[in-house]
Amino acid sequence: MNIVVAIKHIPSIADDLPVKGNNVDFDSVDFVLNEFDEQSIEQAVLVKEAVGGTVTVVGVDVIGELDNVLHLALAKGADKAVKITGDDPAADSHQQAKWLAEAIKGLSPNIVFAGVQASNDLDGQIGPMIAAYLDMPYIGGVSSVEVSDHTATVNKEFAGGFGAKYSVSLPMVVGVQAASKPPRYAPISKVRQVAQMATIEKVAPSGGVSSGLSFKKMAPPVVTGHAEMIGGSSKEVAAKIVELLKSKGLA
C-alpha cells in the first residue's frame, strides 16, 4: 500500500502576525506544521500499522526549514520524506496543490492524506485540488479511516454532531479532520537520531498555476471592543455595573 501524506508548512499564529507590504512579513514569523497535517500523518501511520505499506510525506519547502518537520514525521513512523524546493513563502494554496500533485503522481499512491484545512487555507482547497489534479475522488472532514483491499471506510463529520460512514474505492484523497487516535509523541532523541540518518528526497517544483487573485491590502485585525474585569466586593461591583449602564444610557 502506497500511502502519501501531503503537508503544509505555515506561518505560526501563536505569535502576532507581522505584516509587511500587502502580505505577512515572512521573515519575522515562525513556520510550523499545519495542525491538521499532524492528524493526517498520524492517520496515515495508523493505516500503515493496520495493513502494511509505506508512508511517504511530501511538502513544499517554502522557507527552507521543512527538514525539521519531515524528521518529526519520520520519527512518528513515516518511511520516506520528499520536499519540493518551492522556496517561496508566499506560494498560495493553488500553487502548492499543483506542485504537490505533480510530486505525488510519481509515487503512484493508493491513498493520499491531507489536512482538511490550514490556518492559511481555511476553505480547505489543497486536498480537493490535489484530488482534481490526480483525478481521484476526495472526501473531507474525515475522523477515521480503515483500509481493506481496494476500499477505504471513512467516517466523515457533519455539523451538529452528525457523522456518516462512507465506503470509497481506492485510490482516493482524504481530507483529515482528526485521526482515529490522538497523534503520538515522538521523543526528541528519536527525532534527532532520524535527523542524522534520514535522507530527504528533493524534488524541483513543477508546473505553475495562479489562483487569479491578488492581495490588495493586508492589516492586523482592528480591536473593536474589550472586556473589563470589575474587582471589589459584590456591592462595589454592583454599583459599578449600575454606573456603567447609566453612562451608556441603558438604565
Binding site: 501563536a14 505569535d15 502576532d16 519575522s28 515562525d30 509523541y185 527525532v191
Partner: peptide, 16 residues
C-alpha cells in the same frame, strides 16, 4: 510538543 517547537510549554510564539 510546544516545548519542542516554541521553547515554552504554553503554546506561545517565541517572540511573545
Amino acid at each position: 510538543q510546544s516545548l519542542a517547537t516554541n521553547g515554552n510549554w504554553m503554546s506561545k510564539g517565541k517572540r511573545l
